[in-house]
Design a protein around this nucleic acid. Structure first.
Ligand code: FES
Ligand code: FES
Lengths: 165, 165
DNA sequence: ATAATAGTCTAGTGATTCTGTCAAGTATTA
DNA sequence: TAATACTTGACAGAATCACTAGACTATTAT
């Protein structure tokens, strides 16, 4: 349940690639495609949508590609996903475009609303910088009984190597 | 993004109706249908699935209907949804039935995993009893700056009346 | 017995959304 | 002017969703 579409997933992975090269000039769609195993044609769609929102900028012609408009620390995962898939809306009742006549007196409405707010807070608190640093597994909230632990403990060696390069 | 199917939503609302009458004998599908505006035929499917999981029991014949197998406080929303829609799986990579070859070295895998665990914890912490008491809007976690406040403050009068009866 | 009540089970179907592909075009640079 | 790269809109197959239909079984009251 609660699956994210591939569009959103690929979008975040593409943004990671752009963020990773933010000090090395623009990244081409082809490069992103090769590094993340997503077709060029599909990425075109996704990146275009993100460009229109102003989150990334494009450079045309030879040597061109995509660059971040902002600091990686200022781009949240929530923002990327909202642009590609619309706002979090667990139920149609909570979708600004739809709504519901039964909200008043509905026993579950606040439940879904609360869950949605939780998710949104999580996604907004996570940025591309966290992804670059391998911090993505730090939950927004530590539940009772859970201990933070060593930040790099769970990061695979492979990832460490890529991040170091 | 991240929409819950109507099946899950209706399932929780149906379970609420069964829980509400847990001291008044079985509830018929017809009653649930009328109180929650869901078709009898669709509810048949949903309740049958929940019955097979053992979460509710059925009584056939006149005067029959459905009853809870357990205390409302022992039935979590997570359990209901898991039964109807499978486990939380933000991405196919996290779905026990699918998986992914790229997990090692994938920069987003832990992000989605962490989000999924957060959601699951929220859903598991919420029970039918909370719904009956109108506590459903208490977020699992109070974020910094948020104050708990009066528990019944946001509950509509309509709901209060229904809960009192 | 039998009629009425109420749950059980299996299929199937139209609508929608998802997950892409394709092709023709525009802008920039060497 | 050729090569590189992004831009845009249309479209199509597959999968999932959100139900509906219909035939069947079990229980109780009369
Ligand atoms: S059914 Fe729409 S708010 Fe509950
Ligand atoms: S793509 Fe499957 S784990 Fe990241």
């Amino acid at each position: 349940m609660l699956r994210l579409s591939t569009k959103g997933q690929y979008g975040v992975r593409a943004m990671f690639e752009i963020a990773r090269s933010c000090n090395h000039g623009p990244v081409t769609i082809r490069e992103i495609s090769e590094r993340q195993d997503v077709s060029v044609a599909y990425l075109e769609q996704i990146l275009n949508q993100l460009r229109k929102s102003g989150i990334i900028k494009s450079v045309r012609g030879p040597g061109g590609g995509y660059v971040l408009s902002r600091d990686p620390g200022k781009v949240s995962i929530g923002e990327i996903l909202r642009e590609l898939e619309g706002p979090v809306a667990i139920t149609s009742c909570l979708d600004p475009k739809e709504g519901c006549m039964r909200v008043e007196g509905c026993v579950t409405h606040l439940l879904w609303k609360s869950l949605g707010e939780n998710i949104e807070a999580f996604l907004n608190s996570m940025t591309l910088k966290d992804l670059l640093e391998g911090n993505e597994f730090i939950s927004l909230k530590q539940r009772p009984g859970q201990v933070p632990g060593n930040i790099m403990a769970k990061v695979p060696d492979k990832t460490k190597a890529r991040l170091a390069s």
